[in-house]
Design a protein around this nucleic acid. Structure first.
Lengths: 360, 360
DNA sequence: CTGTTAGCGCGTTCAG
DNA sequence: CTGAACGCGCTAACAG
């Protein structure tokens, strides 16, 4: 014989099983237009049309359908739509490091724009490795993203993986770190002008031996810094030499090495323009290790003007603001334009974002 | 009459139209198993099975199918799979700010794990606004993500939007900023111990009036810092008072305000433990504005140990490392477990990640 | 060993 | 004004 407690327990157990079963069915049997249709005793297509405010459906029916749909909390199944339109409303984004404020700000700008049009971002980090970049592209292909936004890795030296995307009709927009000698949609900063400004700033502070600690040569952005540097040197009547121009692969190690070279060689600069804030910070740290005072013995000006440097007391003297949010916004706009453009138009566009030297 | 040049031009035009048309069809007529089937003169299901290495299909047929599939560069359409299994292989992630290295590192950890299982991350930033958090959840619902990972905003004071997700059978795992008094899957740091360590460190440096500049009270993490603080004060025989404990909403403005209060009130601390590195940096900056020397007149210890602080000369004296990558990894693992668990098991799990005080 | 068929959720003809 | 039927790409149950 069972005690009352046992019976109660059993019932409670049964009840809870029932509940989870109901619950489970609710999950499995998700709300579809079919369900709404049967609920109202109308056909599926009527519901489909009513939900799209199709005037062919009577106003009363439309209202009833909407009422039921809202009551049942109907959410259209995106997969069904994907299948028909071959559109996933997802956009792939590849950045070297999300950790760098520059890139996370670009992503924020992208988010803002694509959200408005119902697209979702899928973010991948290349960590400056071409192999990871390729894998990301591959997975975007598998996912059937509608478009790709990318800032290439420091290593990337060929662009076949991106060509592959275009072969499948997936538009690609490069931003900031855009490839050299490769026709494509590009959104980049007016780097050259920024570099000239940097030189002006330093020459006004009576620096005469200004060096350039540039980024890898596969990036257009490096070219432009170099062009601006050379233009500035000429414009402000300075002199330079091959020894004053070095390139780093952006890693801390390589940057430190190159900075050491500057310090050890005969021709030591009295100021350095660096590829970005990280390069500046690594180089300044290298200086300190050698007993050289950064921003005193050697003055530093960089690119990117990361927000975090505003909180540092040992940041570069000045930095070229690149307005990363704006880069994100413009890149996203351009990509959306490509996605919507159903014509055979394959004219690539190039958008240039202004820069501004910010003195700290 | 047409000149030769005109004829040529016309032909080239026609040719290019043809090409783009072919190209377009290639895009539209994507490679499907149907196409492979017709190419080989077998049925669709044979191809389907062959591609899955089903032993029921003859080896020769299987090989032929694979050969054609590879030649045609067949990529299965995920939408079709989504439709059947009600699984999108996407995971929604909500963080307050991607810009904070802490969160971008967590995301990196998450990426590493979910990629292995073929899932894709969809990232949303709440920017510490509950309204944005809700919108993100809504869009995850629409996208039918398979699971959600979230670190709640500083504002979030109710969790109905997350309950909604669970109602639809979408598992949720909270990390770092986990909600108070809300049963759920949680991955968090051993904050209390970290806070005790921070107090030990400061008391050994002969600080006797240690304050706590905490985060918002809706976060468990704030509770734990407080508990650790109180435990440390007791353990190391210090005294405290309500005036030595303040909370900020994490914004720069509010943090500055609270720091000013510390400076202006009778009871001025000689050391402060802060909610995180940003709070410390904002507070230290406020000190400087008042002519108080940070880390000299008032010593600072914080949480998070952001990598960027290693490059700063004016960072906190020490910071509690929280191993964000590990948090990401564990959160992702827990979420995947929930996703794979088809039973009615709704027992929530809690994972605690170690902390370690790092002295700079 | 292979083919046929139904169905996942939805939009869209084509018929009433 | 509304419904039936087809197809998007794929898997799986059922037939041969």
């Amino acid at each position: 014989m069972q005690t009352f407690a046992q019976i109660l327990k059993k019932n409670v157990l049964l009840l809870s099983q029932k509940i989870t079963e109901v619950y489970r069915n609710m999950i499995k049997n998700q709300v579809t237009i079919k369900k709404i249709a049967s609920e109202l005793g109308v056909s599926i297509s009527t519901v489909s049309r009513a939900l799209k405010h199709n005037p062919r459906i009577g106003l009363k029916t439309r209202e009833k359908v909407w009422e039921v749909a809202e009551r049942l909390n109907y959410i259209p199944n995106p997969a069904a739509l994907f299948l028909q339109n071959n559109k996933t409303f997802t956009i792939g984004i590849i950045v070297p490091f999300l950790q760098e404020e520059f890139f996370s700000q670009v992503v924020t700008g992208i988010e803002d724009i694509i959200f408005e049009e119902g697209f979702h971002p899928i973010i991948s980090q290349s960590r400056d490795k071409m192999s990871r970049e390729k894998k990301a592209v591959e997975s975007f292909l598998k996912m059937r993203v509608d478009g790709v936004l990318v800032s290439v890795s420091a290593e990337t030296n060929n662009y076949n993986h991106f060509k592959e995307l275009e072969k499948y009709g997936i538009p690609v927009v490069f931003f900031d770190r855009v490839p050299r000698n490769f026709p494509a949609n590009k959104v980049k900063s007016r780097i050259t002008d920024g570099a000239v400004e940097a030189i002006r700033f330093l020459s006004q502070r009576n620096k005469r031996k200004i060096a350039l600690l540039n980024g890898p040569s596969n990036l257009e952005a490096s070219d432009e810094r170099l062009n601006g540097y050379l233009e500035g040197v000429r414009k402000y009547q300075l002199t330079t030499s091959p020894q004053l121009i070095k390139a780093t692969n952006l890693s801390k190690e390589d940057t430190t090495r190159k900075m050491m070279e500057f310090l050890e060689q005969g021709e030591t600069p009295d100021a350095i323009v660096t590829f970005n804030d990280y390069v500046a910070l690594y180089a300044m740290r290298a200086c300190k290790e050698r007993g050289v005072l950064p921003n005193k013995d050697i003055q530093f000006v960089s690119f990117a003007n990361l927000p975090i440097t505003a909180l540092m007391e040992n940041g570069p003297l000045a930095s070229v603001e690149q307005f990363p949010m704006e880069i994100g916004v413009q890149s996203a706009r351009l990509l959306l334009k490509c996605i919507h453009d159903t014509s055979e138009n394959i004219d690539y566009e190039e958008v240039i974002i202004k820069t501004e030297l910010i003195i700290h």
